[in-house]
Design a protein around this nucleic acid. Sequence first.
DNA 1: GCGATATTTAACCAAAAAGTTATTTAACGA
DNA 2: TCGTTAAATAACTTTTTGGTTAAATATCGC
Lengths: 116, 116
Amino acid sequence: MPNDRLSTTFAALADPTRRAILARLTAGEATVSELAEPFEMSMPAVSKHLKVLERAGLIERGRQAQWRPCRLETAPLREIDDWLERYRRFWEASFDRLDAYLKNLQREENSSVRKK
Amino acid sequence: MPNDRLSTTFAALADPTRRAILARLTAGEATVSELAEPFEMSMPAVSKHLKVLERAGLIERGRQAQWRPCRLETAPLREIDDWLERYRRFWEASFDRLDAYLKNLQREENSSVRKK
DNA sequence: GCGATATTTAACCAAAAAGTTATTTAACGA
DNA sequence: TCGTTAAATAACTTTTTGGTTAAATATCGC
């Protein structure tokens, strides 16, 4: 919960409900009730999730009568994309991919053996 | 704190200490003490951060005598990169960038007016 | 085997996250 | 103005996070 921008953005994205809300908003604006509909949780809970997204700058809210339509704001996602840049070279070379693939295979084998 | 992979990764990245550790590891493997050195916090605290990174699959740890060298693992970052894909079209067209820029200007004007 | 070094684990604490229910605010429509 | 609908806020609870200090574990060098 540090308050620098990147931490706030990552924290906001570290919840599947909030990511689902963002995904829904790629289809266009939606009201709070519409956003809440797919989830088995109370409206105040959704309201809190929206506040987290808003404070992170991932959504903006307008006003139309008693509705507060939400829309997606991608600036913070762009910042994450920029942050990732530094790490891309570690996977973009194809030999790195192969290497990772092999390590992954190995790791999965190990863990399934352990689980037995 | 949900336990799906994306949430775990985002949560791990939502802390500046942990991101600094990852950044350090782009320069190569490092021991726990080496990683701890720049921070004003106890070793156990760093150890906990490393455990969070390890559980997220962002680092792997080896053994050399009494040292546990850590190295970067980028697979989870790749997953974030993939997740971002869906949102890229919202900022990649140049008119979107201009649009965002104008909205931003507007918002800043509004909020400074409100603050007066 | 013993002392030193590197790291983890245990036990604890304060603050924050994520949910609840009940209440309040805001705006509509008749 | 009154009832209804949409949403936010208040007050509260439980769990998680991120830190602490003190103790335990593992491995080296001798």
